[in-house]
Write a protein that binds this DNA or RNA. Structure first.
Length: 426
RNA sequence: AGAGAGGUGGCCGAGCGGCUGAAGGCGCACGCUUGGAAAGCGUGUAUACUCUUUACGGGGUAUCGAGGGUUCGAAUCCCUUCCUCUCUGCCA
C-alpha cells in the first residue's frame, strides 16, 4: 500500500503514475487521502489530550485515597467519567477514520516506475529482448501439446476431471518425471545463485494474504477454506514474503534471498476459453519462485539480477524467448514494474508467459510492516521483489512442442541428468 | 476431538488493581580497564502515532497474543477469540 508520507512528498509523481494506470481522477483521489490523514491526525491529537488529562486525574485520585481525602477524590471521579465519554466518542471516530483511510489505501495500486510504458493492453507491452533464432521448423506434422500428451500418455486431463475437476491434470510416467526433474533443476539453479531454499506451507491465513496484496483485491482468485478461514496459495510469493511480516531486519543481514517450490492454486474464475487449452491455464500448477528483500537503493539493480537469472534458466532449456516490460495497464496491482518472460511454443505458434519478475518497492513492505534498521538506528521500509523461476506447465508445453519428432520428443540436454531419460517415447 | 496449563521486552523471567513501558538475569552496543583478550565496572538497549526542536534532544498517547467489558485507574478482574504446551483420542 502507498504511504501517506510518499503522497505528501511526491504528489506529482504519484498522480502521474496513477493516471498512467488509467485512474483519471487521481488528483482528487490523492487529495482526498491527504485530507483524511489530516483529519486522522487532529482526532488523534484531541484524543491524546483527553487521555493525558484522564491519566493525570487517575493518578491524583490514587494519592487522594491514600491520604483519606474522599470528597476531593469523588469530585475528580466525576470529571474523569465525563472525560471517558468524550474519549470514547473520539476514539470511535478515530478508528472509523483510520479504517477508511486504510481501506482507501488498500484500493490504490502501486505507482508505476518511470520506465513503465503507457498502455492498456498486451499490445502495449514493450519487447525488451527477443531471442527467437531457435524456433524450430516443424513442418506439416507439428502438433500442439494437448495432442502430444495424449499420444505419449504423459499428462491426463480426463483423469483429473474425474478425480477433481477441470484444470487439475494428472502427470503420468515420463510426464510426472519431467515435472519432478524441472522442479529439481530450477531449485538447483536458484541455490547456485545464492537463494536460500525454503519449503513453505501452501495454505495461508488472511493476514498473509493482506500482507502481499492478494487481499482484499483479488479475493476471488484464491481458493478459500471456510472452516478455518485459510486460503490456498496462488504463488509461493505469499508464504515466503510473509516470513518477513512485522519484522525489522538489520541492514547488514540484507539482501535476503529465498527460493521455494510449491504447487500454486488459482481459481481463474471466468477466464476460460478456447485460447487456454491444455497446459496454458490450470487451477493447480507447479512453480519455483525467487524472492528478495533488499535495501531501497539497490532494488533496481537486484531486479536486473533477477531478470538475468530467469533469462539464464530459460536459455539453458534451449527455448526461444522474449522479455517484455509490462505497460501500466497490464501491470499487477502491487507492482511498480514487471518484466514478463514468454517462451515460443511452436506447436501452437504462440508466445506463452512463463515468468513474471517484479519490483514492489515499498508497496508490500508497507503492508507487511517490513522494515530495515540502518546503521544509524533509523528505520526505513524495505523493498521486496519476486519472480517465477519458473512456472512449469507452459515450459512443459514449449519443451514438448518445440522438440517433437515423428516418434519421440527430445529432452533438453541440461535436463537429462535430472530425468533419467533423453527423450519421451511411446 | 475431550481435559488441563499458559501466552509479559531480542531471549529467560518477576509482577496478579494505582508508585510498572514494565524488577532481575542473559544477550547486544558503547565506554573504562588490559600489552591483547577474558573477567570486572559504568552507560545504554521496544514499537507505532503525534507535538516540539535548525539539530542533539524533549514532551504526549497507545501497546504485556488479539478484541471487547468492569473500574476514577487494568499486564493484573470478567467475557469473546486466536495461538502454544501437557495428558487422552485419532492419525502420516
Amino acid at each position: 500500500m502507498l504511504q501517506v508520507s510518499t503522497i505528501e512528498k511526491d504528489f506529482e509523481r504519484c498522480q502521474k503514475g496513477l493516471e498512467k494506470r488509467g485512474i483519471k481522477e487521481a488528483e482528487s483521489l490523492l487529495n482526498d487521502l491527504l485530507n483524511k490523514d489530516k483529519n486522522r491526525k487532529s482526532l488523534q491529537q484531541n484524543l491524546d489530550q483527553i487521555l493525558s488529562r484522564s491519566n493525570a486525574i487517575a493518578k491524583e485520585i490514587g494519592i487522594l485515597f491514600k491520604e483519606g481525602k474522599r470528597d476531593e477524590a469523588d469530585a475528580l471521579k466525576k470529571e474523569s467519567t465525563q472525560l471517558k465519554e468524550e474519549s470514547k466518542k473520539l476514539n470511535d471516530s478515530l478508528q472509523t477514520t483510520e479504517r477508511e483511510l486504510r481501506e482507501h489505501l488498500y484500493n490504490i495500486p502501486n505507482v508505476p516506475h518511470e520506465s513503465v510504458p503507457v498502455g492498456n493492453t498486451e499490445e502495449d507491452n514493450e519487447v525488451v529482448k527477443i531471442e527467437d533464432s531457435n524456433i524450430p521448423e516443424l513442418g506439416s506434422n507439428k502438433k500442439p501439446h494437448w495432442e502430444l500428451i495424449e499420444a505419449y500418455d504423459i499428462i491426463d486431463f480426463e483423469l483429473g476431471n474425474k478425480v477433481t475437476g477441470a484444470g487439475f491434470p494428472f502427470y503420468k510416467g515420463q510426464g510426472a518425471r519431467l515435472v519432478r526433474g524441472l522442479v529439481n533443476y530450477f531449485l538447483d539453479k536458484a541455490n547456485e545463485a545464492g537463494y536460500h531454499e525454503v519449503q513453505p506451507p501452501i495454505v495461508i491465513n488472511e493476514a498473509s494474504g493482506i500482507g502481499t496484496g492478494q487481499l482484499p483485491d483479488k479475493e476471488g482468485q484464491m481458493y478459500h477454506i471456510d472452516e478455518t478461514n485459510l486460503y490456498l496459495i496462488p504463488t509461493a510469493e505469499v508464504p515466503i514474503t510473509n516470513i518477513y511480516r512485522d519484522v525489522i531486519l538489520n541492514e547488514n543481514s540484507l539482501p535476503v534471498k529465498h527460493a521455494g517450490y510449491t504447487p500454486c492454486f488459482r481459481r481463474e474464475a471466468g477466464s476460460w476459453g478456447a485460447h487456454v487449452r491444455g497446459l496454458n491455464r490450470l487451477h493447480q500448477f507447479d512453480k519455483v519462485e525467487i524472492v528478495q528483500v533488499v535495501k531501497p537503493e539497490t532494488s533496481y539493480e537486484v531486479l536486473d539480477n533477477m531478470v538475468a537469472h530467469v533469462e539464464e534458466v530459460v536459455k539453458s532449456l534451449g527455448l526461444p524467448y522474449r522479455i517484455l516490460r509490462l505497460c501500466a495497464g497490464d501491470l499487477g496491482f502491487t507492482s511498480a514494474i514487471t518484466y514478463d518472460f514468454e517462451v515460443f511454443s511452436a506447436g501452437q505458434e504462440k508466445w506463452l508467459e512463463v515468468s513474471s519478475v517484479s519490483n514492489f518497492e515499498t508497496y508490500q513492505a508497507n503492508r507487511l510492516k517490513l522494515r530495515i534498521k540502518k546503521e544509524d538506528g533509523k528505520k526505513v521500509l524495505a523493498h521486496t521483489l519476486n519472480g517465477s523461476a519458473l512456472a512449469l506447465p507452459r515450459i512443459i508445453a514449449a519443451i514438448l512442442e518445440n522438440n517433437q519428432e515423428s516418434n519421440q520428443i527430445r529432452m533438453p540436454e541440461i535436463l537429462r541428468p535430472y530425468l533419467g531419460f533423453d527423450s519421451i517415447k511411446r
